[in-house]
Amino acid sequence: MSEKNNPAKTVETPENSDVSRRELFKKTAIAGTIAAAGAVSTTIAASNVESGGLSDALDEFFQKHYQEMSKEEMQKAIARLERKAKEKHGKEIHIGNTPPLEGVLFGYALNISKCKGYRKCVDACVAENNQNRDTTIQYIRVLELENESMNFEEADHYYDRETVPHTGKKYFPIQCQQCENPPCVTACPVEATWKEADGITVIDYNWCIGCRYCAAACPYWARKFNWSEPSIPEEKINPETHYLSNRPRMRGVMEKCTFCLQRTRKGKLPACLEACPTGARVFGNILDPKSEIRYVLENKKVFRLKEELNTEPKFWYYSD
């Protein structure tokens, strides 16, 4: 951050190179050259920051899309990522790659009459998912609304009361709705984000180019960007990760809630549910007619956010 306060530091180009650059600018009328030079220097700058070895940098640069990697390539990539994560965070990190479970489509239901706005889910999520603490990325927003209103524009995102719930208010947690027709996936120009077989929209952090078009496309404000190089105190790192969810991210890529893929694909419950002190959250497989979530969806008065946008969210709200 000291660099940030001292912009002059980065301007330190020697005089003679200034001159040569000016010459260069004069001589290069073809913009393509400029663009190419920019791309190359970017690559070098970015890779220098992130890793020690040149081969690692090259491997990272040429790393294939998640869905195109063979088993061996995947193992190599994961080994490299784990090694680099250890270098960076000083902690052994395991990057899993559990595939989606057969016959499972994840769904989430939230009882808004039970939510008291404690924000326990928000912090449990951050602890579980290794978000950047500098830019304070949070996947869950809890809105405080007037009891009789659903107008988000009048919601308070930053309520900070002695105690909640406050009389006359209701609380409305919003996170990724895991749409069946996710607008973010169609928006992405490089297919860096897609919907997995279990209905979870994921991101390949090593493929994302950081254009943030998905963030513009998402009607639920679920996509968060790594504006700076993520930094997490060593003791706060969750070493149990998944390639597609909570593994350490890098600067300049998108991230989002994955219903704690790293947990739920192993049968565990999402961190936000475990943290909820009021039992407002119900999670499960919506293909299983005997599941709790199906009972909620079939027997309760449920609704979804912005259903009129034809996104078909797999996140339902209900009340007693």
């Binding site: 992405c188 860096a192 180019i209």
Partner: peptide, 22 residues
Amino acid sequence: VLIDLGRPDRMWHLLPYIGRFN
């Protein structure tokens, strides 16, 4: 557009056939 990208080093992902052009 280029300077707006978070990862300009991954521009090549936009190339059809070499990258994945959506």
